[in-house]
């Protein structure tokens, strides 16, 4: 089921997952994504909250520490896997573009 649901990650999910390569606090992800993309991708706090809960449920990330109301998370193996799959998918898209559009020129 999990696989089916996350066959493709949305842009926001992709960036959120990337942020947790190293252990990080959930609340900081908004700023991290904003910095990473130069403010191009903005994550809404509500969406981030819901997604984090969902990712934990799916086993893509796990909780590492709870400090008051601040929770920290880190990517799990299956999280890395799904991120890599998404990367491959995007890469295929890019190479398809290059081979097809490049030919045309």
């Amino acid at each position: 089921m999990a696989r089916l649901k996350y066959k493709t990650l949305t842009e926001q999910m992709f960036y959120i997952l990337m942020c947790m390569k190293k252990e990080c606090c959930g609340i900081d992800i908004m700023d991290m994504v904003s910095d990473m993309t130069g403010g191009k991708v903005k994550i809404g706090p509500g969406t981030l909250y819901t997604l984090l809960g969902d990712f934990v449920k799916q086993g893509f990330i796990r909780e590492t520490a709870v400090e008051g109301r601040k929770r920290s998370y880190i990517l799990t193996d299956s999280g890395r896997e799904i991120l890599a799959e998404e990367y491959m998918r995007l890469k295929v898209q890019v190479s398809d573009y290059e081979s097809y559009m490049g030919e045309g020129e």
């Binding site: 949305t10 926001q12 908004m30 903005k42 994550i43 809404g44 706090p45 509500g46 969406t47 997604l51």
Partner: peptide, 11 residues
């Protein structure tokens, strides 16, 4: 200020 629910499907 970024929208609280930025993902419409989740919203």
């Amino acid at each position: 200020t970024p929208e609280i629910e930025s993902d419409q499907a989740y919203k």
